[in-house]
């Protein structure tokens, strides 16, 4: 169980290894707080996903993870390697597999940009 302020969020299974790799590669900030907060947000999103979607994403993460593990064993999995892998997937027109990079990128983009909004202009309300 987690507390966020006065609100409780129920948690389920954890982020997979490859998903952590992807988040790590996609986050541009070097700031450790930002990096871990982004990972926490993606983690929360993955846990909170509709089960079938989570299963599909997890399945892809396992498959891609296996491939990535091979690359790593050959010393070829750095940040660019992960991004290259995502770009290749992006280029495939496969219905769900092709969505994986977009989904992960969206989550990281949303989180990282929200966490690094420094401007005072953005929260002005009507």
């Amino acid at each position: 169980m987690d507390r966020m302020g006065t609100v409780t969020v129920v948690r389920c299974p954890a982020m997979l290894w490859f998903e952590r790799e992807v988040v790590g590669a996609l986050v541009t900030s070097e700031d450790r707080t930002v990096r871990s907060s982004v990972e926490a947000f993606v983690d929360g999103s993955l846990r909170d996903m509709p089960e079938l979607l989570r299963a599909g994403v997890a399945g892809e993460s396992v498959l891609l993870g296996a491939y990535a593990a091979v690359l790593r064993a050959r010393g070829r999995l750095d940040r660019d390697g992960v991004i290259g892998l995502l770009d290749t997937l992006d280029g495939l027109s496969l219905p769900l597999l092709g969505q994986y990079p977009r989904l992960m990128r969206s989550l990281v983009l949303m989180a990282e940009n929200e966490l690094t909004t420094g401007s005072a202009a953005d929260t002005r309300r009507a």
Partner: peptide, 17 residues
């Protein structure tokens, strides 16, 4: 429309297909 709102007040963190 911020991150916390998505995590706490939305179903599925605001993302379902």
């Amino acid at each position: 429309f911020g991150l916390d709102e998505m995590a706490i007040k939305y179903r599925n963190h605001g993302l379902a297909p």
